[in-house]
């Protein structure tokens, strides 16, 4: 299979899985207390999972870059952060929409909420840092270091609901023992997690392609054989007279 065909396969898989997950979310049983509001979980939980996953991929790619200095690790790291930042924002948004009717507030001083918001901000800083550095090698090195340091927050975000007594409920699925959830709901949730993960893979692949194209443009601009802007202008004749 050619590269573009493989891309097509993963894109089609992502779209159809997301549609299936959406249908499942509508058909899943209604929660005893929250009613239809609980259906937000089918977006909220997979988004949060993708936030963890993408920043973990960035961590691995950053370590790999520092060890091997291969460009593709840097491309993977930045692609994963971009997708991760989007899904962190989606987690915060859906969480806020879910919180207003259920908890009674859009936002509250709660360790899980605050740590997730900080996660979002730090990775925005990562993207800002990359924009500020021109040299590809320096950019890759510094962002790899930040990609490793920033990951310290992930375990804190996940464990915050266990370590502290918070408003946000503790984990339902990612905990020791049986998930405390109806099997039908759990099935739909897992379907959505798979759908989101495939979407993540599709998005990251596309983003890596863009990163490669960007690197190619940068290379072309830096190399000497490209025509200079001034070449289009003919030199004035008096230069010849002066014999410079």
């Amino acid at each position: 299979m050619t590269t573009s065909k493989r891309h097509l396969v993963i894109d089609v898989a992502a779209v159809s899985l997301v549609l299936a997950g959406f249908a499942g979310a509508l058909l899943a049983p209604t929660d005893r207390l929250q009613g239809d509001l609980q259906r937000l979980m089918y977006v909220h939980v997979p988004s949060a999972w993708l936030a963890y996953l993408s920043f973990a991929v960035t961590l691995v790619a950053s370590v790999a870059w520092l060890r091997t200095r291969r460009d593709r690790w840097d491309e993977l790291a930045v692609s994963s952060v971009e997708v991760g930042v989007f899904f962190t924002a989606l987690t915060l948004t859906t969480g806020s929409l879910w919180g207003k009717p259920v908890w009674g507030v859009w936002w509250t001083w709660d360790p899980r909420l605050v740590t997730t918001a900080l996660l979002f901000l730090v990775y925005l800083g990562y993207l800002g840092l990359r924009r500020g550095i021109v040299d590809p090698d320096v950019r890759a090195r510094r962002s790899a270091i930040l990609g490793i340091i920033a990951f310290v927050q992930i375990p804190i975000v996940h464990m915050s609901v266990v370590w502290w007594r918070t408003l946000h409920q503790p984990p339902t699925v990612l905990k020791p023992g049986q998930p405390s959830m109806d099997p039908g709901m759990l099935g739909v949730l897992l379907l959505n997690v798979v759908a989101f993960t495939v979407t993540y893979a599709a998005l990251v692949r596309r983003r890596v392609e863009i990163a490669r194209a960007e690197a190619a443009v940068e290379d072309a601009l830096l190399s000497d054989d490209s025509p200079l802007a001034g070449d289009a202008v003919t030199a004035p004749t008096h230069v010849e007279v002066l014999d410079v």
Binding site: P29, R32, W103, G104, V105, L167, Q169, G184, M185
Partner: peptide, 23 residues
């Protein structure tokens, strides 16, 4: 003056709660 609802981490349809879980 401010009330927040703290929901638990359990999600079930109204009818079939597991026997050992109180509603």
């Amino acid at each position: 003056d401010t009330m927040l609802i703290k929901h638990d981490e359990e999600y079930y349809p109204p009818e079939d709660l597991p026997a050992e879980e109180p509603a």
